[in-house]
């Protein structure tokens, strides 16, 4: 039924500089996200709540997109399913070519570990734990040795501009810095996709702008695919594609031609 939407999603992403060479080359055009007609129904007592009814989304590597919608629209449900935190009750979903619908809990955990990085509104860092150890956490579950973990966590923190805060405990950092640690934690496992749920919701506007700038820069420099889930128009305006959702259905999917750069003064976007 959402034929029109599917057509629109074919808007081709521009300027892919994937650091995950080879297998996900531009020519093959294997989508990172290939969700077809997914539905989610909750049972609350006797009442069935249809949170999603037939949503199809296709997203290619290197995209910077926002899923927008008011609260109760089903955007969180969609994010949970796209993030393999939850499974749909109908439809099919392929993440990076893997058929997620048929996976068990442990396989889903492995997918989350290797292919997805999460950034949450409330950061969700381990308090009283140094930044570098927070960033290491996903690598522990990936079975990577201590030395390589340390190196990769350090590189990730440097990439988010916290190279001088490695040993600081999470609760000693400002909100903006905490979110940077969370972003480092999301990129350290070199995922195919970063899902950011209202990443600026707990930040003041200046820190929020810095975080958006960071996302844009990571996307531009490293070709990391990012999806924001938000109801904030300002966040959406920093992306290149806005997918709108309301009442569990797609209501719009538009490419943004004149993307607003969050940090023009640093000239990050301008150099491209």
């Amino acid at each position: 039924m959402p034929e029109a939407s599917v057509q629109k999603i074919e808007v081709s992403p521009k300027g892919i500089q994937s650091h995950t060479k080879g297998m996900r080359s531009h020519e093959q055009r294997v989508p990172v996200i290939d969700a077809l007609d997914i539905a989610k129904t909750y049972k609350m007592g006797d009442i069935e709540v249809r949170a999603l009814c037939g949503v199809s989304v296709r997203l290619y590597a290197g995209e910077l997109a926002a899923i927008m919608g008011p609260s109760g629209s089903g955007k969180s449900t969609l994010m949970n399913i796209l993030g393999c935190l939850d499974q749909s009750t109908a439809g099919s979903y392929k993440l990076d070519g893997v058929d997620v619908d048929k996976l068990n809990d442990n396989q889903l955990a492995a997918i989350r570990n290797r292919k997805i990085g999460f950034v949450f509104q409330s950061f969700n860092l381990l308090r009283r734990t140094p930044a570098i150890e927070n960033v290491e956490q996903p690598l522990i579950y990936a079975g990577i040795g201590l030395r390589e973990r340390r190196e990769r966590a350090k590189a990730a923190l440097e990439a988010v501009g916290l190279g001088d805060r490695l040993k600081h405990h999470a609760n000693e950092l400002s909100g903006g810095q905490q979110q940077r640690v969370a972003i480092a934690r999301a990129i350290v496992s070199r995922p195919s996709l970063i899902l950011a749920d209202e990443p600026t919701g707990n930040l003041d506007s200046k820190s929020g702008a810095e975080i958006m700038c960071l996302f844009q820069r990571l996307n531009e420099d490293s070709g990391i695919t990012v999806i924001f889930v938000t109801h904030d128009q300002r966040i959406a305006s920093h992306t290149r594609r806005i997918i709108s959702i309301a009442d569990g259905k797609l209501t719009g999917d538009v490419a943004v031609d004149d993307q607003i750069l969050a940090c023009p003064e640093e000239g990050v976007g301008a150099t491209r």
Partner: peptide
């Protein structure tokens, strides 16, 4: 509980 939720989100299995 939140820590457990986070650990699951970043890829910890129930047994881990």
């Amino acid at each position: 509980t939140r820590e457990i939720g986070l650990r699951k989100a970043i890829g910890a299995t129930s047994s881990a």
